[in-house]
């Protein structure tokens, strides 16, 4: 067998198959986002965030964590009497996928003195109806846990 050609570094160390699929996918994703428009997407996400912030703020026993004026379309929150993991499992059963726990930011959780948070994220593919499902699911969790949601007063 003849020796394989040995290029100079750094090519010498670039063994294996390059991430061709990744590059093609990235190009497709950029085309997709460009066709819709970054600003359109941003506006949609901010509308969802504003609506969700208002809706969750109206649920007794729900505390929103992180209220910076300029933030991405994610909503961290706590539900009184329900650990974020228990909440995550119940919401999952209602068809709502959220992330729970430290979010790889344990020092921040320690700073706030909390065990973790529940966190919903909004993106281009979400709509206002998704927020309604989220709100209903949180109320169901409160009902299941027998916390405040069962005896809250009607708005007014």
């Amino acid at each position: 067998m003849k020796a394989a050609p040995s290029p100079l570094p750094p090519q010498r160390f670039e063994a294996g198959t390059p991430n061709i699929a990744g590059a093609i996918t990235l190009a497709a994703a950029i085309d997709y986002v460009s066709a819709i428009g970054i600003e359109t997407i941003g506006a949609h996400e901010q509308a969802l965030l504003a609506r969700a912030t208002r809706a969750l703020g109206e649920i007794p026993g729900v505390r929103i964590v992180g209220t910076a004026r300029h933030k991405a379309a994610i909503l961290s929150f706590l539900v009184e009497g329900i650990h974020p993991h228990d909440l995550g499992t119940i919401l999952d059963e209602e068809g709502v996928a959220i992330r729970t726990g430290h979010h790889c930011a344990m020092p921040l959780m320690t700073r706030y003195g909390i065990a973790g948070t529940a966190r919903a994220s909004f993106a281009l593919y979400n709509d206002f109806a998704d927020i309604d499902v989220l709100v209903d699911a949180i109320r169901k969790a409160q009902k299941l846990f027998g916390t405040r949601g069962t005896h809250d007063t009607p708005p007014g």
Binding site: D86, T89, I90, E93, G95, V96, A97, A120, S121, F122, N126, A129, D130, V133, L134, L144, F145, G146
Partner: peptide, 27 residues
Amino acid sequence: MTHHRDDQATDARHDALRELYQEVIFD
């Protein structure tokens, strides 16, 4: 964010949830 499962599957999962979160667990 949401999935719409058929009703039968949803019922089964809700039973599983009840099975997980029994009153003894809450207590």
